[in-house]
Amino acid sequence: MSGLTNEQILLSPVVSEKSYAGIADGRYTFKVHQDAHRTQVRQAVEDLFGVHVERVNMVKVQAKPKRRGLFKGVRPGWKKAIVQVREGETIEIFEGAQV
């Protein structure tokens, strides 16, 4: 075990049209720690939000090259988790927000 706490595993919710479209189906999207794995994400969501997780899908978002005028740089890559909760359960942090 890498010794990460639940608060260190889940960094923030992902705010996008695609992530909010999944809320109707019980899918919630989080930005997670680079070293976190499925089991840690499942336990963190269940402990922090008091819901039952059915499935966790992990996606590595690749780094992207960016330019602004003459300056070149790279936007950092990150890891996201798409969490499916049991039907009828919700996570309150996402409720009431509009995109």
Rank of each mutant, 00 (worst) to 15 (best):
V59P: 02
S19G: 00
G22F: 06
F30P: 00
A21P: 07
Y28E: 02
T90E: 11
Y28W: 03
G3A: 15
M1A: 13
S2R: 13
R27E: 04
L48H: 08
W78H: 15
V15P: 02
K60W: 09
P65F: 04
A21M: 12
K66F: 08
E7D: 09
L48A: 03
G96A: 06
F30R: 05
K18A: 02
A24S: 12
R55E: 14
F30Y: 03
G3P: 03
Q84M: 02
K79V: 07
Q8I: 00
K72Q: 13
V56D: 12
D47M: 06
Q8L: 04
V83I: 11
I91Q: 07
V85H: 05
V56L: 05
A24L: 09
H33I: 06
K79N: 08
R75A: 14
Q34C: 03
A36Y: 00
V45Y: 06
E17I: 09
D25E: 15
F49H: 14
E54Y: 10
Q8F: 01
L11F: 01
V51T: 09
Q43F: 06
A24E: 14
Y28F: 07
Q40W: 01
Y20F: 15
F49G: 08
F49P: 08
K60Y: 10
E46D: 09
V83C: 07
F71V: 12
Q62Y: 08
A24R: 09
M1F: 10
I82P: 03
K80E: 05
L11C: 04
V14S: 03
H33E: 12
I93G: 11
K60E: 11
V56K: 05
V56M: 08
D25W: 09
F30I: 04
Q34Y: 08
L11T: 03
P13L: 01
R42D: 13
I91T: 11
N57D: 10
G26K: 03
N57E: 10
S2Y: 12
D47L: 07
S19E: 02
G22Q: 12
A21C: 11
V56Q: 09
V85R: 02
G88L: 04
I91V: 13
G69D: 09
E46V: 11
E17L: 07
G69K: 14
S2A: 14
I93M: 15
S19W: 04
E95D: 15
K18P: 02
K60M: 13
Y28T: 01
E92A: 15
Q43E: 12
G77V: 12
V59G: 02
